[in-house]
């Protein structure tokens, strides 16, 4: 099941060239670009691991694509996303975030139903990947 989080996730995976172009757009807007990865793609998991520091002073997006490929060497079987943070007063938040790498086979989510008071049902989803401990998931 294809995880659709962030921008462009209904499009085919971006090529490195396309990622470069998107990142260059962010850099040209003075947004700080960073890389994060995770093996827990639950949509409520906001705590992805950081790959290095956010990058502030690289004028060309090739620097980010270079780090993305360094990150892939170690975490290529996981999800990697690119985030662009706008520090302008009033924004001070992420302006663009998109997945730049995903596992070859995505395990998807288990839907569980819990019956509660009356005939109500409470739904929740759990990534199958998190059935295994960290480090053994992908």
């Amino acid at each position: 099941m294809r995880v659709t989080q962030g921008a462009f996730s209904f499009l085919p995976d971006l090529t490195d060239q396309q990622i470069h172009t998107q990142v260059q757009y962010c850099i040209d807007n003075d947004w700080a670009v960073s890389l994060e990865y995770t093996d827990d793609p639950h949509p409520r998991n906001t705590y992805w691991e950081m790959w290095g520091h956010p990058m502030f002073d690289n004028p060309d997006a090739a620097a980010v694509v270079y780090e993305l490929n360094e990150c892939r060497k170690i975490h290529g079987g996981k999800y990697i996303r690119i985030m662009a943070f706008d520090s302008t007063a009033g924004w001070e938040s992420v302006r663009l975030s998109f997945i730049a790498n995903r596992p070859k086979t995505e395990k998807g989510f288990r839907l569980s139903r819990e019956e509660i008071r009356g005939r109500s049902v409470r739904y929740s989803i759990t990534p199958y990947s998190t059935d295994l401990p960290e480090g053994e998931r992908y």
Partner: peptide
């Protein structure tokens, strides 16, 4: 340093 120089 290399990343800073990329593009140049």
């Amino acid at each position: 340093v290399l990343k800073k120089a990329m593009g140049g």
